[in-house]
Simulated scan of single mutants.
Amino acid sequence: MEYCAFLRGVNVKGTNMKMADVCRVFEDTGMDKVSSVLASGNIIFSSGDNTDNLKSILEKAMSSRFNYDASLFILSELQIAELIKNNPYEQSNDLHIYIFIGNRGVEEILLKEFQQSLKTELERGKIVKNAFYWQVPKGNTLDSTFGKVLGKKSLKDQFTSRNINTIEKILKKMS
């Protein structure tokens, strides 16, 4: 089965790694057809194993190789296609749309945090089929109240997010 591993915290805040080296770690753990999409920690690969085993194997290997507490989330090609299909927002040149990928139930935590945050006029947050989607005006991502909440230590290993454009590139490369 073909999967994408979404690594959390890659190439930010001092955790820098080359995607070729990350791909080598995946290959060394027995993954097939390994490739990366962009430099933000999106690794496409094939395996006959289940996602729970893959997560454990890959986090351990990444932590060992790069000397950091690796956290990643694994989705199948079908799950990624569903994320794109379920996007509740219309794409616009003035807005970013982020999809959050994480532990089961994290979407409820994110929605609660979003509802409690101050918002810009066009900022929206919504859960669709167990995934949290966030629309924010370009240029406001890191300055928004919700954007700052995303760095909370209590949420550290619960999720990662990707711009919908990145998710579309990943699916295109998988297809």
Score class of each variant (00 low, 15 high):
residue 174 M to T: 00
residue 59 E to M: 07
residue 104 R to L: 11
residue 172 K to T: 01
residue 162 R to Y: 10
residue 119 K to S: 02
residue 170 I to R: 01
residue 159 F to W: 11
residue 67 N to T: 10
residue 154 S to H: 05
residue 65 R to F: 11
residue 149 V to Q: 15
residue 84 I to W: 09
residue 130 N to L: 02
residue 30 G to V: 11
residue 43 I to D: 01
residue 108 E to C: 08
residue 77 E to P: 00
residue 33 K to E: 12
residue 70 A to H: 03
residue 94 D to M: 07
residue 108 E to G: 10
residue 65 R to V: 13
residue 43 I to V: 14
residue 145 T to F: 06
residue 44 I to F: 08
residue 157 D to T: 13
residue 69 D to K: 15
residue 94 D to L: 12
residue 165 N to I: 11
residue 50 N to A: 10
residue 93 N to G: 14
residue 121 E to M: 03
residue 133 Y to K: 03
residue 133 Y to G: 04
residue 34 V to G: 11
residue 87 N to C: 15
residue 131 A to Y: 09
residue 120 T to L: 05
residue 151 G to W: 01
residue 133 Y to N: 05
residue 31 M to I: 06
residue 61 A to M: 13
residue 51 T to Q: 10
residue 48 G to C: 14
residue 111 L to P: 12
residue 31 M to K: 13
residue 110 L to C: 04
residue 125 G to T: 05
residue 86 N to A: 05
residue 42 N to A: 12
residue 122 L to D: 11
residue 145 T to G: 14
residue 126 K to P: 03
residue 89 Y to C: 02
residue 165 N to Y: 10
residue 171 L to Q: 11
residue 94 D to H: 10
residue 162 R to V: 04
residue 70 A to Q: 07
residue 154 S to K: 13
residue 101 I to S: 11
residue 34 V to Y: 13
residue 31 M to T: 12
residue 122 L to E: 12
residue 38 L to N: 08
residue 28 D to V: 07
residue 58 L to A: 09
residue 112 K to F: 01
